[in-house]
Write a protein that binds this DNA or RNA. Structure first.
Length: 1049
RNA sequence: GGGGAAGUGUCGGAAUUGGCAGACGAGCAUGACUUAGGAUCAUGUGCCGCGAGGCGUGCGGGUUCAAGUCCCGCCUUCCCCA
């Protein structure tokens, strides 16, 4: 290579130089300021605001960078885009840090925000920082308080004493949505949650339950809609009143005391309600329990409080319960039915009292069998199946032959030690009736035979009884007892037949079906049964149609300091009095002493606590509970419209909480992105908030965010553990270290081989705790526990020096990132190494965005190479020139327009990974034709198109290249390129030819070729012909000119 | 137990919605350039087979000229609810 050609070394891509430069320029120019412009359509792009925990991690980037890309894309498409950012700054971690490290929560929070704001800026996002809103500042939370007052005024906020979820570790109550999983643990800290009876503030989100079920106005992921729908848990049914029999009530009881309100989704099963069950917490339990039962009931109530909800509700669990001694009247048939207390009924669902229909509810059935309560079937089995066991010796020998001749299906098998019995399975009413007649004729004296599942007939020698009421239950049982000694101990007919395993699968069902044994309703088909019974109940004043929701009102009180104060004052004479709007904000005092217990210091802050009643002027105290932080994040999308609006001014209850002009232009949010983990928390609350504020006249639309998309989670990268080489002695099964050397997982090739001898153990560290390591000492598995004394000095040859046990890295599979596992990926490090543009592009390229997955530290190199290739492709002249031809030009054109089309469509649909893939393809296509087309107009056009398409993704590099191409600042103010369909059409196309579904050849035809021409070419193909020899062509198909399919025989 | 989502090379992942399975990238292999390579460039890379060819999208059936995609039945994983 000659010296002259080496004169100018190609300049390398150096993001570390380019990126800060442009960030400063954009900042100085206010390039991303969102200003109302009625000439342009608006686009409000929003990504979930971070909690300022101290570090922006790769998960934040994964969520925000693609959102930023899409916001930029929309901007280039001609929208006036607002992309704001703020911080969800109240919350427990700040307060815990205050307690542990003696830093004020405000200081801790604001320091973190400073740091995180800086980290976020390094992303180069188009965030309009002028609109930043921080929820813990008075200018912000004064409006959170204002909303509280508004909701109070509207009757949406109320205070009541109720059993609420309480986290003993966080020392505060929680909303039901914050209690997660089967174990009922605290969403924040993972401690098991307990129930406490406390006076708390609630917001009436249930008033909006039906409207929250309507997603017709929003484009939200199916998954979120499903989760919210399930959470709201609407069920239709009826409310029915069961009266406690008057003699079971105390003499001084007020009228109506004994009315037990029951919600049921199955009013059609009312006739089968043979007992009632109250939740142990039900307020009426104590009043109705008969003196003789008091002790047992009380003991049971105590025991129930110690169990978790999931234990109580499990269908697996052995049922427990106690009888109260009292009875109620079933309103449909005036049957006197016993009232029990059992923990499988919860106070939180429905009314805390159920009518038990053991024949058609699994839990009720188990309970009835266990406690000997009657089970009366009232809904026919939809499958019509019945079973009958003909007992040994109850019929003549010839009966089996008779059954056979009559076409019944049965088999003979031993019944215990009693001999061979006939196990008959019947299907349908006609067959059952025939069977009953047949058995009735043949039954020997002193026997009976039953048909269960359908029919429920008990055939005796003199009569046939049907199990259709509590009375017949006892009558049948008494007859059976007199005939057969072993059933003496059975308490109900159902218990008796339940003892025969043959019957088990047909005794109970929960499907809808024709009503039976239900007086005038018998015969009512299942599809209309519920409505008809409900209407009948309504007519007679026994009940009415009702809807029940699983959703509970939102508990907003928190017994902590670091939150927005609840603006309520308690006065001995006036009660709970709202702080006047004009007096807001109720300021959180700064000079507080934090209790090591976590108890709210507001309770002991005289200046905050003591005040005067706004109504009577007397001395009064403030509410010391603060609001759930989800209150602040329920309206932050509106806070960005005009942050800290009218701060310092006194405003009335009629004020607008934000600039009306800003709201009219920007709201609601057009595209919202964030994690799916908030499906029934933030995402449900913010919808409620918007609807409530609409009803308050503050907003004029129904939904806060029109489109929602969720990103997945980036998990930790699996990694090998370090290798340790330990000398020491055996202590039983464990090995005590006397000296220990650690070889880094990064230099696996230098590791010594695994060993396990009397004095030495060596291998990869698979796990670690405070005092020991688990070491893999054989290739296959074989873990050895190595005990390490606290003061043992360890050598780390790979990092020169010594360290402690905590510095030893252990084997990690794919897990969530966490500091303690040392598998956290820091965007700061990545940006320093590769540049922000590379990190942004990699996060888009490496995963399906909505799915996420484990981090891959190797893959990022591919993106680095790509950007570097783009850089040199555009800035360096080609080494070799080639002659251009028309075909090359068309190929280039096609590549450009194909890229425009697919990148546009992919960004629109959040398919970020394929958008990048198409850009890489475009880059490859450009390098292929560079020698021939550089530097023609066509080439220049192609190159600037590439820069424009990359501008949202790699904003810094695009700006730099744009400038170096001599184009006017800024690339981000340019118009998004459009494609020409005509240019996508190829001159010739390659078409595969299939013979019987297998590709046997490829033909090249002109783009516009007719189907006949394509067929012709296909049949002429050499390889295809080889496969057509000696066979008969049945047909030839050319679908859409895409391929040829030849069917032969 | 009910509901939902998913299952594709060594890995991340594509596949115009029924039309060439494996785009794009990582990794690996070979070669070139190099004092050197964890740089760069080029080529190859689903599996079996020397080959023609065969087999391949969790498993088993089905529909179709054609199935990763549609239908039926299973298995596994994750999430939500009970």
């Amino acid at each position: 290579m000659s010296c002259s050609r080496r004169m100018r070394m190609p300049e390398a891509y150096k993001p570390q130089e380019i990126e800060p430069k442009w960030q400063q320029t954009w900042e100085a120019d206010g390039l991303y300021k969102a200003v109302i412009d009625h000439e342009k359509p608006k686009f409000y792009a929003l990504t979930m605001l971070p909690y300022p925990s101290g570090d922006i991690h790769i998960g934040h980037w994964y969520a925000m960078a693609p959102s930023d890309v899409r916001a930029r894309f929309k901007r280039m498409q001609g929208y006036n885009v607002m992309f704001p950012m703020g911080f969800d700054a109240f919350g427990l971690p700040a307060e815990n840090a205050a307690i542990q490290r003696r830093i004020h929560p405000k200081e801790w929070t604001l320091n973190n925000i400073d740091r995180e704001r800086h980290q976020l800026r390094s992303m180069g996002a188009m965030i309009d920082w002028d609109r930043e809103a921080i929820s813990c500042l008075p200018g912000y939370y004064r409006w959170s308080e204002w909303f509280f007052l508004k909701f109070y005024e509207m009757g949406l906020a109320y205070r009541k004493k109720a059993p609420v979820d309480y986290c003993p570790s966080c020392k505060t109550t929680l909303a039901r949505e914050q209690v997660v999983g089967d174990e009922r643990i605290c969403e924040r800290c993972g401690a098991p949650v307990v129930k406490r009876d406390l006076e708390q503030w609630f917001w009436r989100i249930t008033k909006y339950a039906d409207e929250l079920l309507d997603f017709s106005k929003i484009d939200w992921p199916e998954r979120i809609r499903l989760l919210q729908t399930n959470w709201i848990g609407r069920s239709e049914g009826a409310e029915v009143v069961f009266r406690v029999t008057p003699e079971d009530l105390p003499e001084d009881a007020d009228p109506g005391t004994g009315d037990l309100l029951v919600f049921t989704t199955r009013p059609d099963t009312l006739w089968g309600a043979t007992f009632m069950v109250l939740a142990p917490e039900h307020p009426l339990v104590n009043a109705i329990t008969k003196p003789a039962y008091h002790e047992a009931v009380h003991a049971y109530q105590l025991q129930a409080t110690r169990q978790t909800e999931i234990e109580r509700l499990s269908t697996e669990k052995e049922k427990t319960g106690v009888f109260t001694g009292a009875y109620a009247i079933n309103p449909v048939n005036n049957a006197r039915i016993p009232i029990w207390v059992a923990d499988y009924v919860m106070m939180g669902y429905g009314t805390g009292a159920i009518m038990a229909v053991p024949a058609h509810d699994e839990r009720d059935f188990d309970f009835a069998i266990k406690f000997g309560l009657p089970v009366i079937p009232v809904i026919a089995r939809p499958d019509g199946v019945a079973k009958s066991l003909v007992f040994p010796g109850s019929v003549p020998e010839a009966f089996a032959a008779e059954l056979e001749a009559a076409g019944f299906s049965f088999y003979a098998a031993p019944v215990g030690s009693a001999g061979m019995g006939l196990h008959v399975t019947l299907q349908g009413q006609e067959e059952i009736e025939r069977y009953v007649v047949l058995v009735g004729k043949e039954l020997l004296p002193g026997n009976w035979c039953e048909v269960v599942g359908s029919g429920w007939h008990f055939i005796f020698t003199d009569t046939v009884k049907t199990l259709d009421s509590v009375e017949t239950d006892q009558e049948i049982l008494a007859r059976c007892k007199s005939l057969y000694e072993p059933v003496q101990d059975n308490r109900t007919t159902m218990e008796m037949v339940h003892n025969l395993p043959f019957y088990r699968d047909v005794l109970f069902h929960h499907e809808s079906g024709i009503m039976i044994h239900s007086d005038a309703f018998s015969g009512t088909p299942g599809d209309v049964a519920r409505q008809q019974v409900t209407a009948w109940l309504d007519e007679r004043g026994l009940g009415h149609a009702a809807i029940n929701y699983r959703l509970r009102d939102w508990l907003v009180s928190r017994q902590r300091y670091w939150g927005a104060p609840i603006p309520i004052i308690y006065c001995d004479t006036c009660g709970a009095v709202p702080v006047p709007y004009e007096d807001l904000p109720v300021l959180l005092p700064d000079d507080v002493d934090f209790m090591p217990t976590g108890e709210s210091p507001l309770k002991y802050h005289d200046g905050f606590l003591n005040t005067t009643c706004p109504k009577c002027g007397g001395s009064a105290t403030r509410e010391t509970d603060t609001m759930d932080t989800f209150v602040c994040s329920s309206w932050y999308q509106y806070a960005y419209l005009s942050p800290y609006y009218r701060e310092g001014e006194s405003v009335s209850g009629n004020a607008s909480p934000w600039d009306p002009a800003e709201q009219a232009y920007w709201a609601p949010v057009d595209t919202y992105t964030g994690g799916a983990e908030h499906a029934v928390l933030h995402l449900l609350y913010t919808r409620f908030f918007t609807k409530a504020l609409r009803d308050a006249g503050v907003l004029h639309f129904d939904e806060p965010m029109l489109q929602l998309r969720n990103q997945g989670i980036i998990l930790g990268e699996p990694r090998s553990g370090d290798c340790v080489d330990v000398s020491g002695t055996w202590e039983g099964a464990a090995f005590r270290a006397t000296s220990l050397t650690v070889y880094s997982f990064e230099n696996k090739e230098t590791w010594p081989p695994p060993t396990r001898t009397d004095v030495r153990v060596r291998g990869e560290v698979m796990d670690r705790d405070e005092m020991s390591l688990k070491v893999r000492t054989t290739e296959g598995g074989g873990l050895t526990v190595v005990l390490v004394d606290e003061d043992l000095e360890m050598e780390f040859p790979d990092q020169e020096g010594t360290g402690s046990l905590a510095d030893v890295l252990y084997h990690l599979d794919v897990e969530k990132m966490s500091k303690s596992k040392k598998n956290v990926v820091s965007p700061d490090t990545l940006v320093a190494q590769h540049g922000a543009d590379v990190v942004r592009a990699y996060l888009m390229f490496g995963w399906r965005w909505e799915q996420g997955g484990p981090w891959d530290s190797q893959g990022i190199e591919g993106v680095t190479r790509w950007l570097s290739r783009v850089w040199h492709l555009i800035l360096d002249p080609p080494h070799e020139r080639e002659a251009a031809d028309e075909e090359t030009n068309r190929e280039l054109d096609r590549a450009v327009h194909y890229a425009i089309k697919s990148v546009t469509e992919d960004l629109e649909t959040f398919s970020f990974n394929t958008a990048i893939a198409r850009l890489m393809e475009m880059t490859n296509a450009l390098s292929k034709v560079r020698g021939a087309t550089w530097p023609t107009d066509l080439w220049n056009e192609a190159v600037s198109t590439l820069v424009l398409l990359m501008a949202p993704i790699t904003p810094h590099m695009a700006e730099e290249l744009w400038a170096r191409l001599g184009k006017p600042y800024s690339v981000h103010q340019q118009t998004w390129p459009t494609w020409d369909e005509a240019k996508l059409v190829e001159d010739t196309v390659e078409i595969p030819v299939q013979v019987n579904g297998k590709v046997r050849g490829r033909i090249t035809v002109a783009a516009g070729a007719t189907d006949d021409e394509i067929k012709q070419a296909a049949l002429e193909d050499e390889n295809v012909q080889r496969h057509l020899e000696g066979v008969q062509i049945l047909k030839v198909i050319v679908p859409r000119g895409q391929l040829v399919s030849i069917v032969v025989r």
